[in-house]
């Protein structure tokens, strides 16, 4: 008689899919990439809305915009720009991997692809950070 083994469920892992994002136990890089992709995506949606709000300052005329430019050149603001660029780079480059793998391209080498893209992201982030603080 054939013995059918039932799939083993990890009962310790949260059943709520959202909570499972943040459950780091026994997680591999792919899980971190998945969770970070979603988190950066959410952050970028919030930024999209904020960006529209900020651009609305232009409707207040030159004085209002000049005030914003002064604020935007504060080092803390520039640091937030770097965080934003990190989000864009990670989400964009990891998104390329997700799309390629989803279409069946580079499935076997997606680990290598991930690390190559992350090296590109890191180099671009360093260059961008230097530009943000020196332009």
């Amino acid at each position: 008689m054939e013995h059918i083994q039932k799939p083993v469920k990890d009962t310790a892992r949260p059943r709520n899919p959202l909570m499972a994002w943040f459950d780091v136990r026994k997680r591999r890089v792919g899980s971190w990439a998945f969770a970070l992709n979603r988190l950066t995506g959410l952050g970028l949606v919030v930024y999209l809305l904020l960006h529209l709000v900020v651009l609305s300052i232009l409707l207040q005329g030159e004085a209002g915009w000049d005030k914003f430019i002064t604020l935007a050149r504060h080092p803390l603001f520039l640091l937030m720009d770097v965080v934003l660029i990190f989000g864009i780079l990670f989400h964009g480059l990891n998104g390329i991997r997700v799309a390629l793998v989803g279409m069946g391209i580079g499935v076997r080498s997606h680990k290598t692809l991930f690390w190559i893209l992350m090296v590109i992201a890191l180099v671009a982030l360093v260059i961008s950070a230097v530009m943000v603080f020196t332009i």
Partner: peptide, 24 residues
């Protein structure tokens, strides 16, 4: 997005002195 956002970031922030265009 990679294309148009790249263009947007470059044209609006990276080639502009101070990273932001003036009102005018």
């Amino acid at each position: 997005l990679i294309l148009v956002l790249g263009l947007h970031m470059f044209a609006h922030h990276f080639v502009v002195e101070g990273g932001l265009r003036t009102y005018t």
